[in-house]
Design a protein around this nucleic acid. Structure first.
Length: 561
RNA sequence: CGGGAAGUAGCUUAGCUUGGUAAAGCGCUACGUUCGGGACGUAGAGACCGCAAGUUCAAAUCUUGUCUUCCCGACCA
């Protein structure tokens, strides 16, 4: 591509309302443009990057034996009613009606349609396994789109679905996809971790996330310093701390005026923080419960939801609280109150602890489990850095991540809901075992930008750069220079190398800045010495900066791409 | 959905407290000088100040409403 007479522009100033590094640079470099919150246009450069990512994924999927298909984005809503997901998606789904008032939605995901497609083929156990995938746009009316391309409302996703007779062969299909993902992300040069994750609205048996490590990640990744353990904090198990068992002391009411937080209590009563218990009030599907965690722990709502098998788990409001006690939030506890009490495993190890007395301004000291009735006990808190690894006893540390891929063992959830069955060898009708596998295409693009960009702009790895090589002509009005550059451009094209020729009548500085901003990995500069057959060869990452004679330049470039 | 901030030229912003229909830089056009890391000078073009009501002789500025966008949180494959 020649830049003169091309649809190409860059923006010099930082973009207002694009605070993330990747979002800002992708817009500044003219790769994308925002049209509405979480809705982006892809311009020529940006589209090329996106396509290259898609093609890497497509290549790896094909190698893994998956077949590409394409589903509609416009989907009749009734199929989501059948799978009972219409309500679980709720307001995240874009809904519309046709002229006959039939309800449609813009697909937020495609499990249902893939099941319908699979029904065409699957009759018997002989018809499996197979895997089908598509690269297509999904629509989700996110509560808060953010960070440029990282969380958008329309986004391109590769989604694959495996169909197997049972969990044994399903496991094989699953591992094939995991391998394909590793290959794809390796080629994209993304720094990522695989972590265990919550299955969420997808349901199923197991979920693993591929998380790109960046500072602006939306997820907290829990890693171990001495083994391969990795988990999203949502589901990372906590190794409950053990405490010395003390003899039970007599519970005692003490005045704690004005104390609202655990820190206040610790200061006021000179209590050790490990002797304090925090009471959190949750509304679980409308019912008020008290959740008890050690004073310095944070409650994990995902774990609480699972323990109680609830759907809607939210912090209670002051109004909710009034239904069960007159006490205010800072003075709550498990003693003498008529609500279900859920305790964290760690609380079960504690004795003679401090907690609220359900009387504003008062706490009890020396409370023990025998002083109240426990409804449920479980792991309901977040891991902290420095905690003990539940697998090997090593130390836990955190990273922030952007979810770029996700693999699920769905099991039979969808096949049962949508009647996807097969006949086995003994002529029994059985539900199909499914897996599903997603990669966020533009999210990969943003994650790479986030990880690799420097103070000069974007830096793309060679396989996903919009062009592999850029030619910068210092002076287009110099006939020698322009003819050398044009010849080189043609020869590189003949070699099948993606090459961008900056033949604009701009000053050299502007051209250098633009080539850096858009992140072309290799640059050839055609300048004064080109009349002596000398060209400059430089890599965007700064590792190469050398002069090469013009008859050797193509061989030199081929070494790298 | 809760908390915070912001909408003024294509872009980034000033002006708003203390009302008098608008300013700068970048970009753009023309000419000249420049020409290897976002050049300089001169002259221009370009804005019903998000939208709607209200107060007022007069509103970018004050009041109310509304829409949009971003940030933190909630939520989220």
């Amino acid at each position: 591509m020649k830049l003169s007479n091309s649809f190409f522009y860059t923006i010099r100033d930082d973009i207002k309302d694009e605070d993330s590094k990747s979002g800002n640079l992708l817009v500044r470099s003219g790769m994308v443009k925002k049209e509405a919150s979480g809705v982006y246009m892809f311009m020529p450069m940006g589209l090329r990057v996106k396509r290259k990512i898609e093609n890497i994924i497509r290549d790896e999927m094909d190698k893994a034996g998956a077949n590409e298909v394409l589903m509609p984005a416009l989907i009749p809503s009734d199929i989501f009613h059948k799978s009972h997901r219409y309500d679980s998606f709720g307001p995240d789904m874009f809904k519309l009606k046709d002229r006959n008032d039939r309800e449609f939605c813009l697909g937020p995901t495609h499990e249902e349609l893939f099941v319908m497609a699979a029904k065409e083929k699957i009759k018997s156990y002989r018809d499996m396994p197979f895997n089908i995938y598509q690269i297509q746009d999904k629509f989700r009316d996110e509560a808060r789109p953010r960070f440029g391309l990282i969380r958008t409302r329309e986004f391109t996703m590769k989604d694959a679905y495996s169909f197997d007779t049972d969990s044994n062969t399903g496991e094989v299909s699953y591992q094939k996809m995991v391998t394909a993902y590793k290959n794809a992300f390796y080629r994209m040069e993304i720094d990522y971790r695989i972590v265990k994750a919550d299955t969420g609205v997808m349901g199923g048996d197991l979920s693993e996330e591929f998380q790109a490590v960046t500072d602006i990640g939306e997820d907290i990744l829990v890693m171990c310093d001495s083994c391969s353990f990795g988990s999203n904090i949502e589901v990372a198990p906590v190794q409950a701390e053990e405490f010395e068992k003390e003899d039970k002391k007599e519970m005692e009411l003490v005045e704690t005026p004005g104390a609202k937080t655990i820190e206040d209590i610790v200061g006021l009563l000179k209590a050790d923080i490990s002797k304090t218990v925090k009471t959190l009030v949750y509304s679980v599907d409308g019912e008020i419960i008290f959740a008890l965690v050690k004073g310095d722990r944070e409650l994990n709502e995902t774990k609480l939801r699972k323990l109680l098998k609830g759907n809607d788990v939210v912090l209670a409001t002051e109004e909710d609280l009034k239904k069960v006690t007159d006490a205010s939030f800072g003075s709550l506890g498990p003693v003498g109150v008529d609500v279900k009490i859920v305790i964290d495993n760690e609380v079960a190890n504690m004795s003679n602890f401090v907690c609220g007395a359900n009387k504003t301004g008062y706490h009890y000291i020396n409370v023990n489990l025998s002083d109240f009735q426990v409804y449920r006990q479980g792991d309901i808190v977040n891991v902290r850095e420095g905690d003990t690894c539940p697998h090997c006893g090593g130390r836990i540390y955190f990273k922030k991540g952007i979810e770029i891929g996700n693999t699920f063992k769905l099991g039979t959830k969808y096949s049962e809901a949508l009647d996807l069955n097969y006949l086995d060898e003994e002529n029994n009708l059985k539900p199909v075992y499914m897996g599903c596998y997603g990669i966020g295409v533009a999210r990969c693009m943003a994650a790479i930008a986030e990880q690799k960009a420097d103070e000069h702009g974007l830096v793309w790895s060679k396989e996903i750069a919009p062009f592999s090589v850029g030619i910068t002509v210092i002076n287009m009005n110099d006939e020698k220079q322009s003819s050398v550059a044009l010849k080189l451009y043609e020869n590189l094209n003949k070699e099948g190398i993606d090459v961008l020729l900056d033949d604009r009548d701009e000053r050299a500085g502007v051209k250098f800045k633009d080539m850096d901003l858009i992140g072309i990995p290799y640059r050839i500069t055609v300048g004064k010495k080109s009349s002596d057959g000398i060209l400059e060869f430089k890599s965007r990452d700064g590792k190469i900066d050398t002069e090469v004679s013009s008859d050797k330049i193509i061989d030199e470039i081929k070494k790298y791409i």
